[in-house]
Amino acid sequence: MTAGAPSWTFTEDDFGAITGSMRRFLDDTNSMCAMLVDKSGQLVTTVGSAPGLDPTTFATLTAADFGANDQLARILGETDFTTLFHQGERESVFVADVARRLILVVIFDSRTSVGLVKLKLKPQVEELTALLDVAMSRSRLGVPQQEKLLHGAEQEIDDLFQW
């Protein structure tokens, strides 16, 4: 169960496994770009590319979009909308919940079909959920690395703001 884990840390191996899985998904579906975004809008990773795409902005707006739709679902008595689809003339976007913690964003164009992306999306979400479960359960056992990273760095932080 991954929901509600307060913090977690990816190791390089986790990160490699997650990006590898997303790359395979891009190849299998012939999509342009896939992003993994934290529900607070922070970009975790991106693979592939789309012309003119600013991943940071895209990640933030996706999280807001997903958050707003999550609330709409609750108003309707649904627990959540696990997948959203935005159809454009040239490019379209699928957005899916992963482990109730992250959001998978897939951008694709006419070189593939909605049906194929949708078909492959479900097993992809399951695969990512399994990978995240491993990372999160490990984080629950050990001290998160982020607590150590800036430990004792008070002076360096002060120096950073000498502008």
Binding site: S40, G41, V44, T45, Q145, L150
Partner: peptide
């Protein structure tokens, strides 16, 4: 909750 990305060597915080 801040996010530390060791791959891109970034500390991301939300204000």
């Amino acid at each position: 909750m801040s996010m530390i990305n060791y791959a891109s060597r970034e500390i991301n915080c939300k204000i």
